[in-house]
């Protein structure tokens, strides 16, 4: 069993296709949708956690790419620039998943990438602008 968090971006023409159904039915994957941004006639974006057998997972990824989707790992998308971070805690009450959290008793901010769902709330909540998101570059 492998488990990955992925960001899928798909063209407007595919918005009406039952892609997730295919992943479950044809590739026997477990799909947990963390965030979805889908509008008619616009590029769609799905953030999801996918688990299943490695072989099936790789086949599913290939199939999605063949359909015209762009796929990236979530971890590569949201970047905590520790050099910009001043170690205040403003983000910690804004982050809904605990990905940005204060370690106690040191009160240092830590970024737990595995908990991040790319909701982007931190981007503007961080006064030092230490959080960056890359969603528009391809794989």
């Amino acid at each position: 069993m492998i488990k990955h968090k992925l960001v899928l971006r798909f063209p407007a023409s595919l918005v009406e296709q039952p892609l997730i159904y295919r992943l479950v039915k044809d590739y026997d994957l477990m799909v947990n949708i963390l965030r979805a941004d889908i509008n008619p006639r616009k590029e769609g974006r799905l953030v999801m956690e996918v688990s299943g057998r490695e072989e099936k997972y790789q086949q599913a990824l290939q199939w999605l790419r063949d359909q015209g989707l762009r796929i990236t790992n979530l971890q590569q998308q949201v970047i905590w620039r520790s050099d910009r971070c001043t170690q205040c805690g403003a983000c910690s009450v804004i982050c809904p998943t605990g990905a940005l959290a204060i370690s106690r008793p040191s009160m240092a901010i830590r970024f737990y990438e595995d908990k991040c769902v790319a909701c982007e709330h931190c981007i503007k909540a961080c006064p030092a602008r230490a959080m960056e998101i890359y969603l528009n570059n391809g794989e």
Binding site: G89, V93, M107
Partner: peptide, 23 residues
């Protein structure tokens, strides 16, 4: 406040410092 939450009106309210304590 540094513990991560305070209790107000019987409710747990998460807390966040804006001043950097590690700094």
């Amino acid at each position: 406040l540094n513990s991560g939450s305070i209790t107000l009106n019987g409710r747990r309210v998460p807390t966040a410092p804006l001043s950097s304590i590690p700094g």
